[in-house]
Nucleic acid binder design. Structure first.
Lengths: 336, 336
DNA sequence: TTGTATGCGTTATCAC
DNA sequence: GTGATAACGCATACAA
């Protein structure tokens, strides 16, 4: 690989000069600029980003940690595509690290990005506790943003929705539509998001004085197959319901399939609701739409805040955006 | 950030010694090892990967370039999750670069990964021509693998399926099942894959002496919305068909939705076929399954070959794997 | 077994 | 305007 020194020799100047014309910092005459570019052309020179990053102590990259279990399913590609686009719009590069499927591996992924000296890091935790997240933020100088968790101490470092309220709102709407037999398929039992959504379902039932019936609750683990299995379980119990709330889009998709196979028409006989909506919408599954923060806005707020921290060294107090419950227009639209 | 020098001082040794105990290269006494680890603990030292990569001229990373248009949809998350897992299984890290939506941006993404000195690069081209891919491979010392394209010169550097044959095989099966009115929704007109799949459809019709009817062909651009629009177009024309081939899974999903909305039952009245299958299967869309190489195998072969090149410096002639037409068991299974 | 010295390819701070 | 030269943090050949 040809280096800067090689270019300097060809152009008959010093490394320093080549560096100047390339970075645009410092004065250089038009003539030497031409000669340098000429030399670059001829030699096929390409800057070594590693060396540059080491010298400048600045990588122009943001790291993202996501659990492997999210890689499958419709939510992830939305998350990633927005994150990548927005990061690059801000002149930086997104680096993805796999959080795999355990707390330890999630830690390793974070550590890797830190060791790579990313300017900032975004974490979508799945196994790490909010306590540990708070600690990690304190222990490192790089700015860190946490998605989908409400941190105890670092409020400015997290963006999340009130999952319980969102789930309750969905049930509210169903009740409003006249449903009383509302089934529910849970997410993973060890997932905070899953737990909160289930709590919201129960909370809303209580609010509407609808008795909670265990036979209407099936347990899943976020995948389409679980959604299908959940429906089988419900039907197998002889449970009767006119609405079904699945804890995410993937399970809703699986559930609808299974309902179809069982000869139940959707949404005529059973209304099915997912939670993520953005990804689901194009798939035309009859969703009630999400009441929680859409991925797009969530990522946008996160990256925007992270980059502010990176550039201003964490100075300045930002207003808290998290916890805001956003009702999307699509909710109304789809309910008509 | 505390560096190696700091650790060396604390442990009362030289930087070189610290480096040795960390890398495991060279001899070190148990005692100094203990002291060094002790010092590392105390100081919270973390290695700077950038410096290490610069010094060793080895990054232990593989780069992947994918167009932004693929980010949406079910195929991408499959592709990425397998790529990430397999890369890490081989002890390396995958770095994703966004190819966005033009040839120029695809070039830039490749260039970025090269400048980052990735050990090897995988490209899933969308806008770059095979000619240019061949040139890029020749111009760079890093090993490069190309997905889903048949290169003219560097046969060992690409893994692909015969898309035309795959499409034809799908039609063959439909004909075998008794269908003669087979509609088709194309992919993007500027996409090689899309063109080849359409060609396969036409080829099979000719082979079975079924007249080609333009009214049975709708044009799409890979998205679910296009699949739905395609169905609308077909129905709007008053076209009658008992089978519909969509050029990818996303469009098949959209098409099925639209058929449902139009009161057409699937698959009773119309059989719908997608192409990617792996992602589609859990969603329970009645697919005929893919005849082309599944993502999993494609990625596996690619990474395996790439790492071989990286480690052996491109030495050794590998047998050609590309172009192999893999019939999946699911094809039979689903057709029963 | 350990230390010294040099290199990796840049950037940045000086003089000139 | 330009050229030495010292960082940046780590690895490694060689000497000890």
């Amino acid at each position: 690989m040809t280096t800067m020194l090689e270019v300097a020799r060809r152009a008959g100047v010093s490394k320093a000069t080549v560096s100047r014309v390339l970075s645009g910092n410092g004065y250089t005459s038009q003539e030497t600029r031409d000669r340098v570019f000429q030399a670059i052309e001829e030699s096929g020179y390409r800057p070594n980003l590693l060396a540059r990053q080491l010298a400048t102590k600045n990588t122009q990259t943001l790291g993202l940690v996501v659990t492997n279990t999210l890689y499958h399913g419709v939510y992830f590609s939305e998350l990633l595509s927005h994150a990548a686009r927005m990061t690059e719009d801000r002149g930086r590069q997104l680096i993805l690290a796999d959080g795999k499927h355990s707390a330890e591996e999630e830690r390793q992924a974070i550590q890797y990005l830190l060791d790579l000296r990313c300017d900032g890091i975004i974490i979508y935790p799945r196994f790490l506790s909010v306590e540990e997240m708070d600690e990690i933020i304190e222990q490192h100088s790089q700015p860190i943003m946490v998605l989908n968790r409400k941190l105890r101490r670092h409020h400015r470092h997290c963006v999340y929705s009130d999952q319980q309220a969102a789930a309750a709102a969905v049930v509210d709407k169903l009740v409003e539509m006249g449903h009383t037999d509302i089934a529910f398929i849970t997410g993973s039992a060890d997932s905070p998001t899953g737990i909160e959504r289930l709590a919201g379902y129960k909370q809303a039932l209580v609010r509407h004085e609808i008795p909670l019936r265990d036979e209407l609750i099936a347990h899943g683990k976020w995948t389409p197959a679980c959604g299908a299995a959940g429906v089988s379980t419900l039907l197998g119990r002889g449970a009767r319901f006119s609405a079904l709330v699945a804890s995410n889009d993937d399970m809703a998709i699986g559930a609808i399939k299974q309902l179809h196979q069982a000869g139940v028409s959707v949404p005529e006989q059973v209304s099915v609701v997912g939670f993520d909506d953005i990804a689901l919408a194009p798939y035309v599954i009859p969703s009630l739409a999400s009441v929680k923060m859409p991925v797009t806005e969530m990522i946008q707020e996160t990256i925007s805040r992270l980059i502010t921290m990176v550039e201003e060294g964490e100075a300045g107090e930002l207003p808290s955006f998290s916890g805001k419950l956003i009702r999307r227009d699509s909710l109304k639209r789809l309910l008509e």
